[in-house]
Nucleic acid binder design. Structure first.
Lengths: 348, 348
DNA sequence: CACGACCTTTGCAGCGCTGCAAACAGCATG
DNA sequence: CATGCTGTTTGCAGCGCTGCAAAGGTCGTG
């Protein structure tokens, strides 16, 4: 649908009897415009219903006013909750958000850290990588402002925002050990190049055991390709089929925990009496599930605003600022899946 | 971060020894370019690492190559699942997706159906309204291609894509009645201007009763401001405090159902033995919750692709096509919250 | 060999805006 | 009254691309 010719700066200028440059100045709120001309121009703008053409502005300015946010999966609650906060934060700064999901595809991820297939579509990227290795990140387009979310360590050319995964995982595991559980499992390990997030959690899991001088039950560390419900359900089934099943499980995401609990319940086991379960991410589901899920709660709002703030800083700087390692706080939220039902509550 | 001068069409043209217009033709795959020049140009493109500047292209073409998708809340699984499909479908067609959440704010919604605050940011909008009334929709910018998702009837200037809510709701309610339940409640009614979605569901609820010649228990129809877990939990609590609580509940979303189940379980009631629960939307949560949730499953993939397809059609047509009423299929998915646990399964 | 038909390539203008620097006040000062 | 200063307005060029129409080539045909 070709829309008819629209009102331009020049039209407004003509009506107001000033140059188009002056109209531009008024529209953009630049200083040094007399009140008189400002009013005159404003009136003309209103009268004609002028609205600036962002495309033209962006072309002239050489920036798009958009940032891309790249997540592996959009329908993962953790990401959508994070996205929600990021969009808000960006909008406040006058930026639009372009969303892309990679489905964990490495080539797609690689393309995106290289400005996509075309220039100027976005001024910077907030990226939550999955399949992208350190190496791929290294030979990226270094002029593209980048902030990484998750568990990758900055190489100095981009910022990294995340919680302290090792500490959080250690804390989660210690919580289970504190309950007196002796066979603690871990679901979600990914001992290969692109599984850095998972590896940090496994490290925390091990550290917790070390601190208590307890041996890790290696056969209870289960790998999963992703961190979703089916993975959790499957891994739990595997664990229950062992000769010596666990009495507690540290799940690397709440979805994994929900999947695991699903399996436990199906097998007629009680949570937490038979098996205690702790998750990671603090998504809303976990607060309303049955039982509710104990979890590590990262400060998502803080992660989002920090990421946006740093990215815009990068975009606006002539000389790239040093890549920072930014830690957002987290906390342990204890719910029924480890503490048992609230007093006076029975089970359905 | 000001990036240095980038490779332009002209640079490529110079190297290849042709006009910039020819390079443009090659890059865009236009017909009528000899194989020889095409190769020569392609080599120059590769050599210089040329990538087109979308902004400039869009300005010249008078379109942005972006569509906006507007949802009330991004962290609602139903919307994020839908979004995921929409993004995929749009990308296939070479469109980028700009996401906006309105938080149900009416002014914000109104602004968006009027092209936002500036022109050319997006070529069309897929809109899932919440606070926007029929009236507000009427005085919108009629040149902006629009597809509405949900339960609003098209006025002929835009398309509408959704399932048959009345039929689906009737089916859901009949499923509960078929279980022999006599006091069926409904959670999620919104008997006011902007609650059309809810009203259609209530209508289906009533129709189911009518077909069986049963009276609706008016006091069991509960209003909620939104369709989320807390709303469901609260409404259920209210229902249980009645002198004659229900023995089945039709929830207007799966989240409401999950919230309701949460309350039921907290009060020590069994689902479905004491109270059967059915939801709406078929989000993944409901397939892994305890108990799993019976639900109305709309064909989200179909909704997404249809919406994108129709929107692009609108964008490309010189004369606006007639506004269509497009129905996507739905089905009833029976799970534990109405059918009881699978054989051999106990409860945690 | 001239001519028209068709295919390929080109040049130019312009999308609507902003950066830049020059031009033009208005005003106080020497 | 000339001079310099600050504050305001303007003109021009150009961001990098595509639409358009015209120019240039190639070829078959009369």
């Amino acid at each position: 649908m070709r829309r008819g010719r629209e009102v331009t700066l020049r039209d407004v200028a003509e009506l107001a009897g000033v140059s188009s440059r002056t109209v531009s100045n008024v529209v953009n709120g630049y200083a040094n415009v007399t009140e008189r001309t400002r009013l005159r121009v404003q009136r003309a703008v209103d009268q004609l219903g002028y609205r600036p053409n962002v495309l033209a502005r962006n072309l002239a300015q050489g920036r798009s006013g958009q940032i891309a946010v790249v997540v592996p999966y959009l329908d993962t609650p953790y990401f959508s909750e994070l996205l929600q906060s990021i969009i808000r934060a960006a909008r406040v700064q006058g930026y639009n958000v372009l969303i892309d999901q990679t489905d964990g595809d490495r080539d797609h991820e690689r393309m995106l850290v290289n400005h996509g297939s075309s220039r100027l579509l976005f001024d910077g990227v907030i990226f939550s990588p999955l399949g992208l290795s350190q190496a791929a990140l290294a030979d990226r387009d270094p002029t593209l402002p980048l902030v990484i979310l998750g568990e990758r360590v900055s190489d100095g050319t981009f910022d990294h925002v995340g919680i302290d995964d090792v500490a959080a995982s250690r804390q989660a595991t210690e919580h289970l050990l504190d309950l007196g559980r002796s066979r603690v499992a871990a679901i979600g390990d990914q001992p290969y190049e692109t599984g850095e997030a998972a590896q940090l959690r496994t490290r925390g899991f091990r550290e917790a055991h070390e601190r208590r001088s307890l041996a890790v039950h290696e056969e209870l560390i289960i790998r999963t390709p992703r961190f979703n419900r089916p993975d959790g359900a499957g891994a739990m089934a595997h664990l229950l089929d062992l000769d010596h099943p666990p009495d507690a499980v540290f799940c690397y995401s709440d979805l994994v925990a929900l999947g695991a609990i699903h399996t436990l319940v199906s097998r007629g086991l009680r949570v937490p009496e038979d098996v205690a379960v702790i998750g990671y991410d603090d998504i809303e589901d976990g607060a309303y599930s049955n039982p509710t899920v104990t979890t590590i709660s990262p400060d998502k709002e803080m992660i989002a605003t920090t990421a946006v703030e740093r990215l815009l800083l990068r975009i606006d700087s002539r000389t790239p600022p040093p890549g920072l390692e930014l830690r957002a706080p987290h906390k342990l939220v204890v719910r029924e899946s480890t503490a048992g039902p609230a007093p006076g509550r029975r089970r359905a």
